[in-house]
Design a protein around this nucleic acid. Structure first.
Lengths: 151, 151
DNA sequence: CTTGATTTAATTATATACAATCAAATGGGG
DNA sequence: CCCCATTTGATTGTATATAATTAAATCAAG
């Protein structure tokens, strides 16, 4: 019985971490012609789906906080893709709106998912199963992410 | 037929990306008493398993390049956990060796995997399946990561 | 109305990631 | 031996991530 719990091969976090970076690297050359990064891409996906939310609401959908989103959204603003409008009712809130240019970029992005699928050789069954398991990880524990360490 | 390929919910990259960050966040408080970050942790996992390799060999095991590893290893060196020794035979190569302190840290790390398992509520079957699918993603396409975009 | 807790972005500091480039070193062909 | 392609780390620049703090605004209780 010489099971090594610290073997890289016995971790599930490690292939998750490595696969995530690998998939992002697949996107990078496809997004480069659009002038955006992967994180900017998923932020735009969220905005193309639902526009005009606050930074906080957007962050909840993307599982990202303001420390990541604020500079990213300022970058998108500097590229003319979004507007950042501070609320008059509550000056703490900032609403994010796509500009016409930002909305138009969606047409170019439509090709991306198809191209990615052609890069990844995985059966539909495996992809559906992977999808299910990832959302299982993502959904559990509410939003706290707090880990019970006792016993 | 109004399938939206750009819906966040229809991407598999997104839950992969979000789940990876979520799991790293679970590790963070467990590694904080050891004085290391998640990336430093998996680097140490690799070293505890096989010591005395070059930066390049280490990077291949971790899927990380010198731009990430060089500063990380210098940080571990500054903490007295590893030695960086430039090869005499080939001055381009730098061998990484654990110090006694770095080897000793393994004892403290032994508790981490168990604690993580208690944080993640997933059946053994699902975890094994997730593991298989992640390595399927990781293994394919050799190391090029090049995407065939034509047709 | 006032105090204090909460909410929300922004800021700061630290640590990744990675493309691109550089520089040193090696090794092979002529 | 000399030239040049290749290898290997390091460096630089840009873009994330996230914890912690700050600052402004809101809201509830008294």
């Amino acid at each position: 019985m010489d099971y090594n719990p610290l073997k890289l091969e016995n971790q599930i976090c490690f292939p998750l971490y490595a696969a995530s970076r690998k998939i992002i690297k697949l996107y990078t050359p496809l997004l480069e012609p659009l002038g955006i990064t992967y994180t900017q891409y998923i932020t735009l996906l969220a905005l193309w789906e639902r526009d005009g939310e606050t930074v906080k609401a957007l962050g909840e959908r993307l599982f990202l906080d303001s420390g990541t989103l604020t500079p990213l959204l300022k970058k998108l603003e500097s590229q003319g893709l979004v507007d950042r409008r501070r609320s008059h009712e509550d000056e703490r809130q900032v609403f994010i709106h796509l500009t016409e240019k930002g909305k138009a970029l969606r047409e170019l992005a439509l090709e991306v998912p198809h191209k990615i699928v052609s890069c990844v050789d995985m059966s539909m069954e495996d992809a559906m199963e992977l999808y299910r398991l990832l959302y299982l990880l993502l959904k559990e524990e509410g939003e706290s992410g707090v880990c019970s360490i006792e016993q």
